[in-house]
Simulated assay, not measured.
Amino acid sequence: MVRIGAHVDQDDPLAHAAARGADAVQFFLGDPQGWKGPVVSEGAALTTAADVDVYIHAPYVINVATANNRIRIPSRKLLSQHLTAAAELGAKGLVVHGGHVNAGDDPQIGFDNWRKVFERMECPIPVLIENTAGGGNAMARKLERIARLWDALDGLDVGFCLDTCHAHAGGEDLVDLVERVQAITGRIDLVHCNNSRDAFDSGADRHANLGSGQIDPELILAVCRAAGAPIIVETPGDGQGDDIAFLRKNL
C-alpha cells in the first residue's frame, strides 16, 4: 500500500495526520503568498522523529521561469532556502509549481531559466515540479509544455508531482494521463489527489473533496493506481479524513 496523506497546517502536522488517519503530510514553512524565508514551527520540527512521510510545498510566489529579474532572482533564493529547510526535516521532496513567463515572451526563456536553477543549486532532496491549472504561458500546464521543460532539463535529476485537479482544469484528460506523463518525465514521485470544483479546461485551481466536484472519482482512482506513487490530498480539510479512507478502501 502506498503512503497516503494530506496537506495540513504547519502548526502541528503530526496531530493533523493522526486526526485524518494519514501516514504522510505536506505543509508550508511560512506564508505561501509571501517572500520571507522558511520558518520551522515546533510542531513541524517534531516530524523528523515520527513515522510519517513529510513533503514540503514551496510558496506559491516562486516563479523561477520568468524573465523578470525582480521575481526570478528572489524566487531562486527562496527556493534554495526552502530546499535546505525541507532537507533538514528529512522531507521526501519539495513541491514547486512550474511557473510561467509573460504573455509576449518566448516560452523557451522559461525552460532555459529552469535549467539554470538546477545547474546552480545543490539538491539534497528531490525538487518535484508540479503541473499547474492555469496560465496561458505556463511552463507546466499542458503536456506539450512539460515535454519541452523536460527536454531542457535533460540529464538532471528532477522529480514530478502530478495534480489531478490541475490536469483536469488545465485541459488534460485523466484517461491514460499517467502513461502520457511518464512517457515525458520517466517518473511520477507524488500524486496530489484532488477533485475539481470547476469544469474541464477551465484554468481554475479550485480543489474539491474526492466524492464531489467535476471529475469522476473512478478516474481519480485510476490515476492513483497507475502512478503507484505516494498520495497527498489537498482537498477541503473537513473532508480529508473521508478522502483518505476512500482511497485506502478502493486502492
Rank of each mutant, 00 (worst) to 15 (best):
T235E: 11
S202N: 10
H168G: 06
H168C: 08
A226K: 14
L210I: 10
N209L: 08
V233P: 06
D189P: 12
A204M: 09
E179G: 13
I231S: 04
H192G: 14
C165G: 10
E218N: 02
T164G: 08
D176K: 14
T185M: 12
R206D: 05
R187Y: 15
D201V: 02
S202L: 08
S202A: 11
A183C: 06
S196V: 05
D176M: 12
G170V: 02
N195Y: 01
A169W: 01
A222G: 04
G170P: 12
G170H: 05
T185L: 10
A226W: 04
T164H: 06
G203W: 00
V191L: 14
C193K: 00
E172K: 08
R225D: 03
I220F: 00
D173N: 13
I232G: 07
D205E: 06
H207D: 13
G203L: 01
D205Y: 06
N195Q: 08
G186R: 11
C165K: 07
H166Y: 14
H166M: 13
V178P: 07
C165A: 15
R206V: 09
E218T: 05
N194Q: 06
R225C: 02
I232A: 13
H166S: 14
L221S: 11
V233F: 03
V233L: 08
A229M: 11
A199N: 07
A227K: 01
A204H: 09
H168T: 03
R225E: 04
G213H: 05
V223W: 05
E172M: 12
R197Q: 15
N195R: 05
G171C: 00
T185C: 11
A226S: 15
P230C: 10
Q182V: 15
A222C: 01
A169T: 08
R197G: 10
E218L: 02
A169D: 05
A229Y: 11
H207P: 08
V223K: 02
I232C: 10
N194G: 09
F200K: 10
G237N: 11
A183F: 00
G186E: 12
A222T: 05
G203S: 01
A227N: 02
F200Y: 15
A167C: 09
I215L: 05
A222D: 14
R225I: 00
D205M: 02
T235M: 09
C224E: 11
I188P: 09
P230G: 12
C193Q: 01
E234T: 03
A229E: 13
V181H: 10
A204D: 04
H168K: 04
I231T: 07
C193S: 08
N194I: 06
R187I: 15
C224Y: 01
L174C: 12
H168L: 08
N194F: 01
L177R: 02
A208T: 09
G171N: 00
G171R: 03
D216K: 11
H166I: 11
N209M: 03
D216S: 13
D201I: 07
D173T: 13
L174Y: 11
N209S: 13
V233A: 06
A222S: 14
D189L: 13
V233S: 04
Q214A: 15
R225Y: 00
D205N: 03
P230K: 03
C165M: 15
A222H: 02
I220C: 01
L219S: 13
I231F: 03
R197S: 09
D198C: 03
G203Y: 00
A167H: 04
F200N: 10
